[in-house]
Amino acid sequence: MAATEPLVTIRGLSKLYSQGEIQVTALDDISLDIQSGEFLALMGPSGSGKSTLLHIIAGVDKPTCGECHVGGIDVARLDESALADWRNQNVGFVFQSFNLIPVLTAFENVELPLLLTRLNSKQRREHVMTALDLVGLADRAKHLPKQMSGGQEQRTAIARSLVTDPRLVVADEPTGNLDAQSAQDVLGILQSLSQQAGKTVIMVTHDPKAAAYGSRSIHLEKGRLAE
């Protein structure tokens, strides 16, 4: 892929929800390019459609119409099974409430996506430790989520999102449940992923300070890109 070619290309994307007889427009004719290695902050008020857009780009939701190409693949056209494989190989997820499995250690949580690969135990260990090292948690590998702070949990979740070496990392309000210092740490890591590792990071946030870490911000209002 050429350096200038966008990783994400969205054209005429709309998403409608039916609530009984009422149709709600979550996204309305969105067209957008996101360059490879970009750190994009998606902003907007609640209900503006930013999370829906993020979900469609990440392949966990389908548009009603329009196209969403990620790395040249129209994710809207992939079937359930192919989409699951595609997500495992191409997308890292970071959620607001971390979503680590409580009975697994930090190491095991990060290892989870690798269970779907052909890597052997030793190779998985190397990948997991590299990811944990990258977020500064190599010494917490054996800790359970309940034994870690919120910031450490979110850094573990970032390590999990990175462990398969995806091209795209999507983060939905990643600092929403964190104190200021932990939020800075997490945003710093996401920024370095974009700037140093060349990952494309798309982050949904309400917080302008968080959005300032991004290389670009776009605003959504009532399902449309704001002028």
């Binding site: 990440a58 966990v60 359930e80 099974s81 699951a84 494989d85 997500r87 495992n88 190989q89 997820f93 959620f95 979503n99 499995i101 989870l112 996506p113 779907l116 999990r160």
Partner: peptide, 16 residues
């Protein structure tokens, strides 16, 4: 349910 949705997001398929 939440955790299973996360597993799906991470790439685990329905059959898994």
């Amino acid at each position: 349910f939440r955790e299973l949705a996360v597993l799906k997001a991470l790439g685990f398929r329905r059959r898994e």
